[in-house]
Computed example of a mutant assay.
Amino acid sequence: MTHAPLLFALSAALLVGALLTLGGAIVAADHPRWSDDLGIDRADLVPIAIGTAAFGLLIFIAAVSAILAAITGA
């Protein structure tokens, strides 16, 4: 059996992690405009955006590690 379904799922996790990281970083960098658009106080929005970016980065790192482990067979 090949590892195609596993690698497909891990690739999807890789994409989700990258999008969460990018989205959180964009909102954290441009928080005055986003807080006005979303109706959230600026002091409340930045920790949420940074937490989202950090969570996405963790997902990205875990997916990369699992892909490398699956490829190398370790």
Rank of each mutant, 00 (worst) to 15 (best):
T72S: 14
G56C: 07
A12W: 10
L19Y: 00
L6W: 07
D41L: 08
I40E: 08
L20R: 08
L45F: 10
G51N: 10
A66I: 08
R33N: 11
G24L: 00
V46A: 02
A9D: 08
M1L: 03
F8E: 11
A66N: 11
L58H: 05
A18S: 12
M1Y: 06
A74W: 13
S35R: 06
H31E: 07
A9S: 11
A4N: 07
L45K: 08
G51Q: 05
R33K: 12
L10G: 03
L14W: 13
L57M: 08
G23H: 00
H3P: 04
A69K: 11
A28W: 02
L14A: 11
V16K: 05
T21S: 10
L19C: 03
P32W: 04
A28L: 03
S65E: 05
P47G: 03
A69D: 10
A25Q: 05
I26W: 09
I61G: 06
F8I: 14
A12L: 15
T21W: 07
D37G: 07
L10K: 04
S35A: 15
L68T: 11
F55D: 06
A13L: 15
M1I: 06
W34Y: 15
G56M: 09
A53L: 01
W34H: 15
V64H: 01
L20Y: 13
L6I: 09
A62E: 01
I71P: 07
L15F: 09
I50H: 05
D44P: 01
A63R: 00
L15T: 12
G17L: 03
I71L: 15
W34V: 13
L68N: 10
L68Y: 13
V46K: 05
G51E: 00
F8Q: 12
A66E: 12
G51A: 06
R42G: 04
T21Q: 08
I26S: 04
A70I: 09
L7Y: 07
G51I: 07
A74R: 14
H31Y: 15
I71V: 15
I71S: 13
L10W: 03
L19Q: 01
S65L: 14
L7F: 13
I50A: 06
V64Q: 06
A28V: 00
V27H: 00
A9Y: 09
I71K: 14
I40R: 05
F60P: 07
A28S: 05
G24V: 05
F8N: 10
A49R: 02
I26L: 13
T2L: 06
A62C: 10
P5L: 05
F55N: 09
A4I: 15
W34A: 15
A70D: 14
A43S: 14
G51F: 04
I59K: 05
F8S: 11
F8P: 01
M1N: 10
I40S: 06
T52R: 04
L68H: 09
A63K: 01
L20E: 14
G39N: 03
F60C: 11
A9K: 11
A63N: 00
L38M: 15
M1F: 10
A13F: 08
A69F: 10
G23T: 09
P32N: 00
D30R: 12
